[in-house]
Design a binder for these strands. Structure first.
Lengths: 118, 118
DNA sequence: CTGATACTAAAGCATATGCTTAACCAATCG
DNA sequence: CGATTGGTTAAGCATATGCTTTAGTATCAG
């Protein structure tokens, strides 16, 4: 029954850390080298690199080495995958609320002594 | 500089596990008792309870004990908080792409010998 | 009452995560 | 050339996570 989705696992896990979200937020404003992503973070450069590799593994960031600096850029598609899952859930419970409303309306039409289905 | 958001931390972390997403997917279709959430999962009931408490801590699920069963229901607001963060990022990089397009257009209007700013 | 059901609480444990420091490599600067 | 900058790798370690089993506590059915 378990709808296995290693993609979503990696994606949400990558977004679950403030340092990694800060990197994504920075990259949403345009490409940047590793050291610029790392500078505002309260940790060593190697630690920041590890966060970056989590983002790359999740497909959220792509990077390319030019000279001795590594330019990083956001990969918008990955983010929309997460959004799609969330939207799917919302559609589902909205559908359910609609059905519930219909049902209550039906009760309202049929019986008139007691409209409470609680 | 780090935009601290323990809410988003908990939220995305809660969604980063297939068992927990399966619970959310089930609850999107309507309320359910703990044991029904746990049944399809390849783990013991206590393990499932721990996942459930992660979902509750993230505000994704609310539960109430009635008699000896605990009824669980999804809490749609939490999900939209995650969605909002994702949307904010998208707006940001779309804005950036727009600015970039404008800039390129400007170059196209001004100079006509060489339109490459690369 | 007795026993089954549904959940809960606690202890223990294997593995994963998130950092650190130290050492290293490659590109650029003086 | 040697020194500096930007990045990378590896080892080590403290803590967190994700389960397990065991042992409960209420609730409800008969």
């Amino acid at each position: 029954m378990l709808n296995q989705s290693p993609d979503l696992d990696r994606l949400f896990h990558a977004l679950a850390d403030p340092a990694r979200r800060a990197m994504v937020e920075r990259l949403s404003r345009g490409p940047a080298p590793v050291s610029e992503l790392a500078r505002p973070l309260p940790m060593s450069l190697p630690a920041a690199m590890q966060h970056l590799s989590v983002l790359e593994a999740a497909g959220l960031v792509r990077s390319e080495k030019v000279g001795r600096i590594r330019q990083c850029a956001i990969q918008p598609r990955a983010l929309s995958q997460a959004e799609q899952w969330i939207n799917a859930q919302r559609r589902e419970w909205e559908r359910r609320l609609d059905r519930l409303a219909d049902y209550l309306k039906t009760l309202d039409n049929e019986g008139d002594g007691d409209g409470r289905g609680d």
